[in-house]
Design a protein around this nucleic acid. Structure first.
Lengths: 300, 300
DNA sequence: CTAAGTGTATTCAATTATAAAAAACAGTAT
DNA sequence: ATACTGTTTTTTATAATTGAATACACTTAG
């Protein structure tokens, strides 16, 4: 009925390990040193030592910590950590919204979702709070959360931001110094695109990965933390959305490869205006596809 | 040891009010209707009715709810709501960071801060979680929060984003149709600037308000929720920062007014290129000022 | 005497239990 | 048949609880 003693358990097992590496009669380092090496507080070290003392693995008296016997496998205490990371939660949540077409306005049930995603409720709270900055969810006046969701307007507004960021990135990119590793990456990407184009009938499915790689390479010239963060969300949302639209996939992908190649060529020739034009063309195609897929999904 | 009964208390007092408006022997509307008009759940209505029944103000039996006597002032129950809004919390928090020069890396003490700002701890949690999207704070591995803070790099990166958004807004602005109310606003702003310039020696302090007004007018052409949200934070951060830099204020403000007027003229003549150039000049000045003030503050 | 180490007390935060509120459901009276 | 009430279930917000971190006082070895 309080926080878990996961840290204690891990520290205890780690101490067992340290005892194993010593022979009987050796003494352990100081509490402060142990706390540094195991990266926990001295409190945790002390309670673990105290347990070791009880079990008889060490004899602890003041600053004397003698190893009395080798710990056995049975001395290990269980530690179960099956909580997922924040990124994983984000991935699963967006997946859920987009995959199951959760309609905008749906009230979000925190306790249900936390069971569903296997995270503590307060972690979900925190996550929803952070999403509220992207206007994807909203706090309801009487408590609880509401999904604002991936509406047509939302998509278009996010797209506008994406356009802004991407064009900005391209302007930077063409001005990169010749020794920048970005140029090598561009060469690689060009070749990969050409290879894929040559076998487009068999391998058109592989485009989605290449597409993400391409755009994230362009974005990578931004070392701006805000833009990186925004880009992360943008990528997630669009990536997931495109993933389930399977109509005309081969044709769409082939056209996109041509657009990418045009953009790569313009970038390689350091022609800012041409690169921006090519990028605008590509974004415009992408926008149309997105709109179409939204229209179809909403009609279902 | 659970949530507050604030809703109950408010509903109870509201019901007293309703009873006052009736005469003895009248009956109250149905539970469902009361719950709709007071905007609380039926559960709350029922517990309030039940209390009213106990106190003898009404006689409640099934769907019969007779008013027995007029409620007196002493029947009111106390309800203390002194919690602040989310915007206010945000304002206070940024104020605290910038005003007291809280150094980056400072661990944030949630319980202390929640006392300090007079908000429930979980509200602060939520707020910090949402700020983490702007990389202003970060969760520490061992629990708790850490202030990442307003470093030089942070300011420059935020400034880059600001530049991007503002230039984008100006491009849109010059393309606005002639009937758009924005043009009237531009006229007004121009006049206000000229008036202020005429009395700059006495009124240079008033510029800060006009400055915010000017930039927020430019931003207002964006109906994009992300950009609006970003702009809100940008405005807060920069506004607060400029507010405490009092060196050469008169000169700086006078120069800024000239830059604003140049930009306004370019916008009014619908010359995109010239407007963008003017905006870039102004942003560049602003950037220099910011850098200077950061340098001085960090040296203290 | 000093520095490193230990003992103790205090503070903070993650979790849980619980009361308040909402919502769902079933039944009843008009 | 519909609108209302009674009851139960579920969910949320908060306080109590306990694990962990930290600060401080004290001790001992060199």
């Amino acid at each position: 009925m309080a926080r878990t003693d996961e840290r204690f358990r891990e520290a205890y097992n780690a101490l067992l390990n340290i005892c194993s590496s010593k022979s009987e009669g050796d003494s352990l380092p100081s509490e402060a040193e142990l706390s540094r090496t195991l990266d926990v507080s001295r409190t945790v070290i002390r309670s673990a030592l105290s347990r070791l003392n009880e079990v008889g693995i060490i004899h602890w008296n003041g600053r004397q910590k003698l190893v009395m016997r080798q710990p056995a496998d049975t001395d290990l205490i269980e530690v179960n950590l099956e909580t997922i990371s924040n990124e994983e939660l984000e991935r699963r949540f967006l997946n859920w919204i987009l995959r199951f077409d959760v309609p905008p306005g749906t009230p979000l049930n925190v306790s249900e979702l936390s069971r569903w995603f296997n995270v503590p409720a307060h972690a979900l709270h925190e996550f929803l709070a952070s999403l509220s900055r992207f206007s994807l969810v909203e706090r309801r006046p009487k408590g609880g959360w509401k999904l604002l969701g991936f509406t047509r307007e939302y998509a278009m507004e996010l797209f506008e931001l994406r356009t802004m960021i991407e064009l900005n990135a391209i302007s930077r990119l063409v001005k990169s110094p010749p020794e920048d590793p970005i140029w090598q990456k561009m060469d690689d990407l060009k070749q990969k695109h050409q290879e894929l184009l040559a076998q487009i009938n068999e391998r058109y499915n592989d485009f989605s990965v290449l597409d993400e790689q391409f755009h994230s390479t362009i974005y990578s010239v931004n070392h701006n933390r805000f833009i990186v963060e925004l880009q992360r969300v943008i990528a997630l949302v669009f990536y997931y959305h495109y993933q389930w639209d399977k109509r005309d996939e081969r044709e769409r992908n082939e056209a996109a490869i041509h657009e990418h190649l045009k953009l790569i060529n313009a970038i390689q020739s350091r022609d800012e205006q041409e690169a921006l034009d090519a990028a605008r063309d590509h974004l415009s195609t992408s926008r149309k596809t997105l709109l179409l897929s939204l229209k179809i999904n909403n009609k279902q």
